[in-house]
Design a protein around this nucleic acid. Structure first.
Ligand SMILES: [Zn+2]
Ligand SMILES: [Zn+2]
Ligand SMILES: [Zn+2]
Ligand SMILES: [Zn+2]
Lengths: 160, 160
DNA sequence: TTCACTATTGATATGTTATAACATCCGAAG
DNA sequence: CTTCGGATGTTATAACATATCAATAGTGAA
């Protein structure tokens, strides 16, 4: 576990442009195509900095004339997830930008149930006790979903 | 982590009747009502021993004249989840019976992507590094979703 | 018993999330 | 230029989930 990329971003504008540039570079080096819809979808996730449903994304894309039917959003999101630029939050059926795109990692998420802000951390869960249990059962882990729902500091303060 | 309730059940018939009886006792002691639809829904989950979608459950209930509209299944499943007799598998949008019903615990799941069999283990994840990260971020964890997808021993053998 | 109260069920409709299927466009390789 | 594969456009539908309101059945007090 490291870098629980926090609920407040010191310099959000910079973090966004940096991550976009990194995604572009990663695509260039691998021959992947960060097309306008894909790029804009990633930018939307980065700007919002929280979990967005596919139809939320679609509405924003549609407002800009980038497509208006569900497959547009799902294709773009699938690309981003497969390329390692975004993650799906299963507990919300929603999507969020990855904070270290392109790197192979097993993310864990802290999800605020009030503002839907998402913080991404790393976890080596498969090396811990879950991994032990899996090995004992003869189970081969291919993918892990680790999501903690609760209250972020801001919302906790507001509720108090 | 303990008891990775395995992919093969030594005595499946007994495990089912035992868990059903425990659920009944738990309801009696708390004044909850394990009505026919609820009881049968739990039995279905116990017999199948894997993750079932709400509409899968509904189809089985409907075949027995226990209701045919979506709310029937969702109400029964919600009751079972709230009462601690079943869990929702977020990665599959599906439901599975709990292996130690009524007890307060934070489950972790090993899910076979081929046969959809589900093994339930416990995890004290919030006491580990995810808990550390949450505390560092000022995040209050209320619920965790821990789901590992992969191949169970049987399916791995079959694939080899 | 009768009443009021609450939990449960029945029934219809709708909302939300996700994919199938097929046509078309477009840029790179040959 | 042609061919071919990835990307998009478009329509339709599958799959998952809830809102709403009426009817019914247990529960306990008057
Ligand atoms: Zn990530
Ligand atoms: Zn919050
Ligand atoms: Zn359980
Ligand atoms: Zn299997």
């Amino acid at each position: 576990m490291s870098d629980p990329i926090g609920f407040q971003c010191a310099d959000h504008g910079t973090c966004r442009t940096t991550l976009l540039a990194r995604a572009q570079a990663h695509c260039d080096s691998l021959g992947l195509r960060l097309t306008p819809v894909r790029r804009r979808t990633l930018e939307i996730l980065l700007v919002e900095h929280r979990a967005l449903g596919a139809y939320d994304v679609l509405a924003l894309l549609a407002a800009e004339g980038l497509g208006s039917q569900p497959p547009v959003a799902y294709r773009a999101l699938d690309f981003l997830v497969k390329a390692g630029f975004a993650h799906k939050i299963e507990a919300l059926n929603a999507y969020t930008a990855c904070v270290h795109p392109g790197l192979d990692h097993t993310p864990a998420f802290l999800i605020c149930r009030t503002c839907e802000t998402v913080a991404e951390a790393d976890t080596a869960l498969t090396k811990g006790r879950l991994g032990d249990a899996a090995r004992a059962a003869g189970f081969t882990i291919e993918r892990t979903v680790v999501e903690a729902t609760g209250l972020c500091p801001d919302c906790a303060d507001r509720a108090a």
